[in-house]
Design a protein around this nucleic acid. Structure first.
Lengths: 250, 250
DNA sequence: CGACTTTTTGAGTCTAGTCAAAACATGTGG
DNA sequence: CCACATGTTTTGACTAGACTCAAAAAGTCG
């Protein structure tokens, strides 16, 4: 039985994206701003600065002064916390339109996590100061930001629940489903996840180790629920993964 | 060596607190509102309704329609998520001035967690609709709420890190320190935590079991770092607990 | 003083981690 | 286009931290 070769096709990051006024389009599509009139968006656009970040490069580090709010214009960004033991914990993977970094000069001055480009990325950033100005000018934007943060809090609490109560197998199944629905690409046979992301990343997402993740993934593959390769996974049977989770602990 | 009997003294919940205009004082002291002029606070006060909740009673349940924002006026409230396996996960313990529940009709219609009174409590609540009105009228309040939610998100991510990378012993030490700084009462010999909270609660906070928590606490007590009893803990040596955490994994 | 709940202790088991090494992909340069 | 260098994934053997089940001990309250 021959396995398919890597189905990974890296997305094309046109260097021009960040340096032209294509930005205006991106910013205008963001949930925070899209309801605003073109004039306001244009004004906001001028407050953003763009940065191209090659894959694997750090955008900022835990403990750095939190002076900017960032937006992913293109590419993937992972948010990571490092434990004292050296173990890396993957908090979230972000893509186009997602925000990260800090909102304000008020709510703490240091970043509490590290942001790393997972692929070549284009990042837009605005100083916390300027963003504060936008919030002051547009109460409805503040409101949307509040909703976005609330949603992220709820997601984080869901992760807490899973880390507390699920087995590794269940956490991995859940992480795959989460990634699939957020970043998956529908293929004929299933949903392809190609961030790219390694066993290492999946381990850091689920509070586990590469070896254990590998073993669990092999089991899933044997069952025919997924197909895996280097830095990609295709989910063939979402239902079975779901059953794993809903099934009582014993 | 005789151990002290329970140092627990339950705080007195005067039924009058909730039913009189003492509420106005409480609301006026909240971080969200305290900067507002008395007239505005008085107006806001009228939108709140008070509820007395006896200990161990549920205030709302996961999945219930999220129609109110709640404030703890007096007492302690725990936020809990139930896993499919039946295991209970303790997300947070709240006390005077803390908010819980949902902010808006927008950000999802169902509660994602269960709220249970840990002690006899007095809860103030406001309909999401009315709270939306306040946010619309007072952009600065929205801003403060945003900061509060952001802070809670950061805290939640810290828990995720701990569940992912700490041993049970480290998680328990960390939980004790967190509770001490938030809800602890300074006594001569140390910091008393008397929520009241059981081994069960501590297990639900740390993704562990009562038995394991008991064993770890006994170890801590043998070392002379804590004194424990039924539903209370006194921390005698915070530094030693801290060392446990900062000390590399092995 | 009992009745009840919470906490502790013990013995046995198992999930998941550790360490080490082999197998496999992928991209590079000859 | 093949052979090699590099990083990733898999496999194996072993270990240990934490869970389970069961029962005894200790606190607390009426």
């Amino acid at each position: 039985m021959t396995r398919p070769k890597s189905p990974v096709r890296l997305e094309w990051v046109d260097p021009a994206v960040c340096s032209t006024d294509y930005r205006l389009k991106i910013i205008g599509r963001l949930p925070f701003f899209k309801h605003l009139p073109p004039a306001a968006i244009s004004k906001i656009n001028n407050l953003f600065h763009d940065v191209d970040v090659p894959a694997d490069e750090r955008i900022y580090h835990e403990g750095d002064e939190a002076a900017y709010l960032h937006l992913v214009a293109m590419g993937k960004v992972k948010l990571v916390r490092n434990a004292e033991s050296g173990r890396e914990v993957l908090l979230d993977i972000l893509h186009g339109g997602d925000y990260f970094g800090s909102f304000s000069t008020l709510s703490g001055r240091a970043h509490t996590e590290t942001a790393i480009a997972q692929t070549d990325s284009c990042i837009l950033r605005i100083s916390s100061r300027d963003f504060d100005g936008i919030l002051a000018d547009h109460p409805d934007v503040t409101r949307k930001v509040l909703d976005a943060v609330s949603r992220r809090l709820t997601e984080s609490q869901e992760i807490v629940k899973q880390l507390s109560a699920y087995t590794v197998e269940q956490r991995i199944a859940s992480a795959l489903m989460r990634l699939a629905s957020k970043l998956g690409e529908s293929r004929g046979e299933g949903v392809l996840i190609q961030l790219p992301f390694s066993r290492q990343d999946l381990a850091a997402m689920t509070g586990s180790t590469t070896e254990t993740v590998s073993r669990v993934m092999s089991r899933f593959a044997d069952e025919g629920w997924v197909k895996t390769g280097r830095k990609w996974v295709t989910i063939l049977d979402m239902k079975k993964l779901e059953e794993l989770i809903s099934k009582p602990y014993r």
